[in-house]
Every structure is written in C-alpha cells, then in structure tokens.
C-alpha cells in the first residue's frame, strides 16, 4: 500500500528488451521453416510411404509434376485433367523445353500418385511422357522415418 502511494503518477517504464529478443527469435524461426515449394503438393493425394525413398535434395532440373488421384484424374498445374488428356499438356511442356533450347529428356517428371490409384494409370502416364521424349521419372513417396 505504501508503495502505491509513493509511486509517481507518470507512466511506468516496462523493459521491452526480453520481449523483442524473443519475438525476433520467433520470426527467425518461422522464416527458416517456411516452405516455398509447397505449390506442388496437394492434399487430395495420399502418397504411399516408403523407408527408402531418397529425400528430395534441392530443386530438380525442369521438373514437371503430375499428380494422380485415386479417382483416376491427374492434377496438372492445379487443374484436374483426365489421364488421356495429359498428352496435350505434355506436348506443351515439350514445346516449352525445346524453345528454351533443352531436350525433353533433361526434364524430370515427378509422379505423385495416390497409393490407392491404379498402377495401370501410372504406367499410362509414364508411357505418354515417354512418347513425348521425357525419360527421367521420379516416383514420389512419403518418406517413412522407420520404426
């Protein structure tokens, strides 16, 4: 009580230093864990998991991501496409590659197929890619850290 009375009516000085320190630490943390490559991931795909899938290191050279859903449709650049129509889009990718002075076989086709999708459809997609001259594939799986 005595203390209160003795206190001056002016504003109290709060030491901001620890709070600012902590806030900056948090910002740095969130900045580092921020993922910029999330565009090619889709919640509609449930990837099969594997302990041996090689973790993705850095960006692949000219990647083309084809995501196959369990309903037999392909998500290409955010659009739902029928498996049979993928060829048209691949043709476009090929043209882009050739215009850039690169051969289609330099590109990597990332196949993110749902675990419940039909293997035949995955093979059909791979076949269409091969026909357009793409020959590098990366079958993507969820990395299982192991038991």
């Amino acid at each position: 009580m005595g203390r209160k009375k003795g206190g001056s009516p002016s504003t109290t000085d709060i030491d901001m230093t620890p709070m600012i320190d902590m806030t900056f630490q948090l910002i740095t943390f969130f900045m580092f864990v921020m993922n910029f490559s999330e565009a090619e991931q889709d919640d509609r795909i449930q990837l099969p998991s594997s302990q041996l899938a090689k973790p993705v290191e850095g960006a692949l050279e000219s990647p083309i991501t084809l995501q196959l859903t369990n309903k037999g449709t392909v998500i290409y650049a955010g659009e739902l496409v029928a498996v049979t129509d993928v060829g048209t889009y691949l043709e476009r990718e090929k043209t882009v590659m050739l215009d850039a002075g690169k051969e289609p076989n330099a590109a990597t086709v990332i196949v993110r197929a749902d675990g419940r999708s039909k293997t035949g459809e995955v093979q059909q997609i791979i076949r269409m890619c091969q026909e357009k001259g793409f020959e590098r594939f990366a079958l993507r799986a969820q990395y299982d850290e192991g038991r």
Partner: peptide, 20 residues
C-alpha cells in the same frame, strides 16, 4: 509467418530412367 507455416511430411523420390 505463423499463418503461412505449413507442416509438410518429408517426401522422397525413386528415380527411374526409362527411355522408350
């Protein structure tokens, strides 16, 4: 940064080279 944070499961690749 907190709102844009998206926790993603680590993914891996099986590289296959399969020319026609």
């Amino acid at each position: 940064f907190m709102c844009t944070l998206k926790v993603v499961a680590p993914e891996g690749d099986f590289d296959i080279r399969m020319p026609l």
